[in-house]
């Protein structure tokens, strides 16, 4: 029984593992070897060099890229989850409005990146954008603001758009989790005289702790893979103020044809993120892995 189980199990997971090995791990391995290869004039010349990594180290833009990437991934994740938590708590309230909103809120998620990036870029533009014009005509700002042209604002505007795109799903997951909190616990807290904020803090939050950490990782994975949004909206500008790993990798490989360095950067990117997530998964192994460990 046990032995046949084992064979059955391997047979069942084989297609998934094979597909991931072939289409994901294979190309990744390719990138890893390329990062150790000298690429000159578009030709691969000689494996076994750290020149690509050295070049990155010497590149003054790379430091800025690391800083921006930290804002993008950490800031983006943090805002995604906290705004998602707020919206999720709101959606968990029973009413007609929230019912509709629960369905409509997914709209940002279903439109392709290409479209949302273009639409936001257009709306945020200082001279032809509806947002600037509305702010000005309602007297909230004096003159319009060039959101995407100001190096101090641009990274945060990108995060706002990112949150817009990724937050709805986070909110729905957390909404579902909040609604699953046992009523008797909430009721008991109310009896004890806890107000709404206290009930949320001491009853709801502990109950949804796992979901919170789960969506944190999911958001982080999403945001890492996100490329079209920043690339279409700013192309890394102005003055590299919104240059992040994803866009810089793209620029190095396809604009500069410098794919040795691009690969080195991908490897660094991957190692950093995988270690964060692997650590997370290890710490939380009880909740996602075998039920035997329960």
């Amino acid at each position: 029984m046990l032995k046949s189980d084992r064979f059955l199990a391997y047979a069942l997971i084989l297609p998934v593992v094979a597909a991931v090995l072939a289409f994901v791990v294979g190309p990744t391995y390719n990138v890893a070897t390329l990062s150790l290869t000298q690429v000159v004039m578009g030709q691969e010349r000689g494996f076994g060099t750290l020149n690509n990594f050295r070049a990155l180290w010497a590149d003054p833009v790379f430091g800025l890229v690391l800083k921006n990437t930290a804002i993008w991934i950490l800031g983006g994740t943090l805002l995604c989850v906290s705004v998602g938590l707020g919206v999720g708590a709101y959606l968990a309230i029973d009413s007609k409005v929230t019912g509709w909103l629960r369905a409509l809120i997914l709209l940002p998620w279903v439109l392709p990146d290409v479209v949302t990036a273009m639409a936001w870029k257009w709306m945020l533009h200082g001279q032809v954008g509806i947002i600037g014009q509305t702010l000005e005509s309602t007297g909230l700002t004096e003159g319009t603001i060039s959101f995407m042209g100001d190096p101090k604002l641009v990274m945060w505007m990108l995060v706002v758009v990112l949150v817009w795109r990724k937050m709805p799903l986070v909110a729905l997951i957390l909404c579902a989790a909040i609604r699953a909190v046992p009523d008797d616990q909430v009721e008991a807290a109310r009896m004890d005289g806890a107000n709404a904020v206290e009930r949320f803090r001491f009853v709801t939050l502990p109950n949804i702790a796992f979901s919170l950490t789960a969506v944190t990782v999911i958001s982080m994975i999403w945001i890492t893979a996100e490329f079209a949004l920043p690339w279409i909206m700013t192309g890394g500008g102005p003055a590299n103020a919104s240059q992040i790993m994803a866009t810089y990798i793209y620029q190095q490989s396809f604009e500069f044809f410098n794919w040795g360095v691009a690969s080195a950067m991908s490897v660094i990117n991957l190692v950093m993120l995988v270690s964060i997530v692997a650590l997370y998964l290890y710490v939380n192994r009880r909740s996602w892995a075998s039920e035997a460990s329960k």
Partner: peptide, 16 residues
């Protein structure tokens, strides 16, 4: 404004 120049590419400049 200079921040407007850095966000407005040729097509929008032409339109304006």
């Amino acid at each position: 404004a200079s921040t407007s120049l850095t966000e407005t590419f040729f097509r929008d400049t032409a339109q304006l």
